[in-house]
């Protein structure tokens, strides 16, 4: 006779735990894991957007072997991408190489966007069809990936970079692979 109470109590406890962690920002039932983390960057090759230099998996791995690279998928039509522009700029100023993949964008729109919010990118690859993004498991923009010296994705964030996520996630990840 105690079984229903036990079940209900267990469910209630779990719900409370979820709400509690949601309120603390530690639990987001809507977030997604990217299976690419811990794996080699997928094979691809893209031309540059406009005058910027494009890149492929080989270029990326080569550059990352010297210094870990932050790969940022962005688009000029994306509002949260503008929100993270300042943070990207400060990371670039620190000397962290940031390589961009422009997702379903045009040269003109992207140029205007970069003029307006600044261009922190060392290279910009043009993924007009959005197919490379799918290979990376990207499901929206912006998303950021950290590539280590051996070409393995070490860290991933879906959504705009914030001061908080840089401090609590990106920096520890950078330290770990330094």
């Amino acid at each position: 006779m105690l079984a229903p109470l036990g079940l209900a109590a267990a469910a209630g406890l779990a719900f409370w735990k979820m709400l509690d962690r949601m309120a603390a920002g530690k639990f987001d039932p809507h977030a997604l894991d990217n299976p690419l983390v811990g794996k080699q960057v997928p094979d691809f090759s893209l031309t540059g957007l406009g005058k910027a230099k494009g890149f492929g998996a080989a270029d990326l791995k080569q550059a990352a072997a010297a210094k870990p690279v932050l790969v940022n998928f962005y688009a000029s039509w994306c509002i949260p991408c503008a929100e993270e522009a300042d943070i990207l700029a400060s990371l670039a100023a620190e000397g962290i190489p940031i390589w961009a993949v422009a997702y379903k964008d045009t040269e003109a729109a992207s140029g205007e966007f970069l003029n307006r919010y600044g261009n922190p990118y060392a290279r910009i690859a043009n993924d007009a069809a959005g197919r490379v993004a799918i290979d990376w498991g990207v499901y929206g923009v912006p998303e950021s990936f950290l590539i280590d010296r051996s070409g393995i994705v070490r860290w991933h964030l879906a959504g705009p970079l914030t001061e908080d996520s840089v401090r609590s996630e990106l920096r520890p990840a950078l330290r770990a692979i330094a």
Binding site: G12, W16, M22, H30
Partner: peptide, 26 residues
């Protein structure tokens, strides 16, 4: 989702109604 506080209130209420009645049942 914007308001987990509402969720906590609801949960407490559910615990009282459901938990109370199931305790009585037990």
């Amino acid at each position: 989702a914007s308001d987990p506080a509402r969720g906590i209130f609801i949960l407490a209420l559910l615990a009282l109604v459901i938990g109370g009645s199931l305790l009585l049942f037990a």
